[in-house]
Amino acid sequence: MTQDDPLLTVENLHTSFHTDDGTVNAVDGVDFTVRRGETVCLVGESGSGKTVACESITQLFKRPPGEITAGSIVFDGIELTNCSERELTDIRGARISHVFQNPQNALNPVYTIGWQLLEAIELHQDVSRAAARAEAVELLDRVGISEASDRLEAYPHELSGGMKQRVMIAMALACQPDLLIADEPTTALDVTIQAQILRLLKDLQAEYGIGILFVTHDLGVVAEIADRVVVLYAGKVMERGTVYDVFETPCHPYTRALLDCLPGRGSLGGIPGSLPDPMAPPAGCRFHDRCPDAVPDCSTGDQPAFESVVGEDHEVSCLHYRTAAEPTVLESGVEPRRPSERTDGGDTHD
């Protein structure tokens, strides 16, 4: 397994939705890569385009209205944007699997989980019923469901939310995928169950060496699971880098604002203003009208080009991150122990 060869490379991805009222460019030029055995988190608020970005990979959204208008998605050497629906169907589930936010809706209530699990196995593998069943038991066992062979006969409503999400993960793993796309898999779960699921994903990743693309709005989860982080805002990437760099020296004002919103960190009050109208995004930096550090330049031209910051692959799309952030932290390369100790604009201390 070559760690450095990207498993998935998304470049300049544009995904649009054509609605009655106009065209929404939900994803507007997004780049990221996922390597084998690595967890990449797409972070952003609702409306940031993170779900659309991950649904674009295997084109899960409805077409029309959705459409990938530009960009390339290379998965293990295959250009997915050129694939036919048939080829995509072969890849979905078999090589790239999805786990969705709401396990309640993702399982069909009229079939037993065994039936659904066997369906997932038989869809992509040519195996006998008995072998598929044995594999299903093995999978359930692997995701931490005890007395697995009995549970095959259970209906979704007989399982708790955490159990259902385990079943969903088992189904996603059924065909030993190379890439697992998890879209807010723990948002609907309690903290104690969330901790179990995150641990499970980490263990499975260590065991199978799969790449995980993890979509979440919860920075606490990101801190728990991510290797690298991509911060999205209004369809654009604001900042990306390793989880340590992004959490310890956040360079984009949006990343800092988001980190400040975490309960127990920074101050109460959220980010003033609201997301820009997706039909008519502002010129310049998408975040400029909510940015505490914005200067007139920020509202002209395109989203600023990425600039490298100290740290491995740490890049930020901000014109003035050097002046906006605490310069000593960046230039001296001294890492503060916790980002909350940093002093920025001066308005976040209570």
Partner: peptide
């Protein structure tokens, strides 16, 4: 089980 907000304490 509260996720830490510090990746070094995961």
């Amino acid at each position: 089980s509260i996720p830490t907000t510090d990746p070094r304490e995961r």
